[in-house]
Write a protein that binds this DNA or RNA. Sequence first.
DNA 1: TATGCGATATTCT
DNA 2: GAATATCGCATAG
Length: 201
Amino acid sequence: MNKKQPRRLKRRELPKATIALARYLIGKTLVHKLGRVTLAGRIVETEAYLVGDAAAHSFRGETPRNRSLFLDRGHAYVYFIYGNHFMLNISSGPHGTGEGVLLRAAEPLQGIERMKLLRGVSNVRDLARGPGRLAEAFAIDEKLDGVDLFGDSVLWIGSALKPVGKIGVSVRIGITKEAHRPLRFYERGSVFVSGTKALRG
DNA sequence: TATGCGATATTCT
DNA sequence: GAATATCGCATAG
């Protein structure tokens, strides 16, 4: 029973550079329509993956698994990892360029009861705090791989519903290569950002 | 806070 | 055939 609705963002509104996009997405709204239920959350943490970046899945070229990462900017790249988690990325470069932004955490706004069912937890703070949790809370799976987030699909990015706080920058989480590059962006002080307290400040 | 392990698709050798 | 992966949870300290 939510009043304020986000506006669908258009592809041409997106910054062209991947790092700029990662920063731009903080505070925006991730929306997934599930029949009658709408799941929505405020993106509070992202990471950029670039060309020539050994930590990026595109580093060794295009394969069947990472092909969505090479789509024109604004498409979903969803993959399965560690035997039990999906991750949601947004492709960034022009078609043929393997860059993208990983969505790592969100603040649940709408459809919270459904998210609790999907996740099997009741603590709102833990619903989408971390990339695997975010995907589970938003019912993201391989069927959404390659979807255009800026067309008219059920999964899309909307405008910000609240002012965005200060944005922090740090190294990325959970990678072993290029682990020193400052390519993680997050809303400072948000309790919905993943990692320990130090990683939210 | 800090390990430690599960469970599997994809890629590498 | 083997290693690795953009993690999360349980359990111990």
